[in-house]
């Protein structure tokens, strides 16, 4: 049995005037994958996602959603999308909005279940006009999931959420993904997706520059943090020493052995030396720097 990819891009191009928003992108998102799209503003993330959703037609190339043209109802019946900007109809209550969206799907999630998952108890029977940013976001998330879709599209899902709602949301999302659903996520909070994303794609100038798991990205970058306490700022040739506060210093390096040897040879007084792997965010930043310098150099 062959199973259809959730999303299929084949040499997709889309320009606005002279700007190539998406420039020959090819990729697949398989069922059960949690894909995170990263990139600076204008890298083509929104354009790519809008094409996956059938809101924009590509200039050339092929886009498929569950094997169908993304504009087709059969494809759209299988997805859930988080509303952007979230200006809901002011004269409707949360429950009425959720029920309106649910009514479009064959096997929607029960409203009570959504209330529990997205902490909606206090806002379910209220008009949305007085909602805080976090309350709007929780309702928006409930709308993305309420259709029980096989693929969920989340653009900056946790913006405006407090710590508790954030945790509750990712917990729910992990369970949901565990049941075989795919996610396509864009976010700036890399620490949050580290444990859920199965693949991360870096977009620069409308092209996928790198694609891999969080671990692959970290090992590709191979950068470590060396931290220690010292009474005065140490000088280490060829390395930038950052002040980490409270008499602590930090050096980022792709060769931590050389740095440590250097510290000892120079007889620098130190204590509590640590060598730490870089975070995903730091690894991604490094990759982006390399990519941009490559493109400007070329």
């Amino acid at each position: 049995m062959t199973s259809l990819s959730t999303v299929e891009f084949e040499n997709v191009h889309k320009s606005y005037g002279k700007k190539h928003a998406v420039d020959g992108m090819s990729m697949r998102v398989e069922q059960g994958e949690v894909l995170c799209l990263l990139g600076p503003n204008g890298a083509g993330k929104s354009t790519a996602i809008n094409m996956m959703l059938g809101l924009i037609k590509p200039d050339s190339g092929k886009v498929r959603l569950f094997g169908e043209d993304p504009g087709m109802s059969a494809a759209r019946a299988q997805i859930g999308v988080i509303p952007q900007d979230t200006d809901f109809p002011p004269a409707l209550k949360s429950r009425e909005i959720i029920e309106l969206v649910r009514s479009h799907y064959a096997q929607p999630i029960a409203v009570d279940q959504l209330i529990e998952a997205f902490l909606l108890e206090g806002i379910i029977d209220r008009y949305t006009s007085g909602f805080s940013g976090g309350e709007r976001r929780r309702l928006a998330l409930a709308l993305a999931f309420c259709g029980n879709g096989k693929a969920i599209f989340l653009d900056e899902p946790t913006t405006g959420l407090d710590q508790k709602s954030r945790q509750a949301f990712w917990e729910y999302a992990r369970d949901y993904a565990g049941n075989g659903a795919s996610f396509i996520i864009t976010t700036h909070h890399l620490d949050e997706i580290e444990n859920i994303a199965t693949r991360i794609c870096l977009l620069v100038d409308g092209k996928i520059r790198y694609s891999g798991s969080a671990d692959e990205i970290r090992s590709k970058v191979n950068r470590r943090k060396i931290r220690f306490f010292s009474n005065q700022k140490p000088e280490i040739k060829g390395h930038l020493v950052e002040d980490a506060g409270d008499g602590r210093w930090q050096i980022n390096s792709s060769d931590s052995d050389v740095v440590v040897r250097n510290i000892i040879q120079r007889k620098i007084e130190f204590s509590a030396l640590e060598i730490l792997p870089c975070t995903l965010e730091e690894a991604v930043d490094t990759l982006f720097e390399d990519q941009t310098s490559n493109t400007t150099g070329a």
Partner: peptide, 12 residues
């Protein structure tokens, strides 16, 4: 409105 835009991705 953005609500209108959101509704465009609903099936049928």
């Amino acid at each position: 409105t953005s609500w209108e835009r959101f509704q465009r991705v609903l099936p049928r």
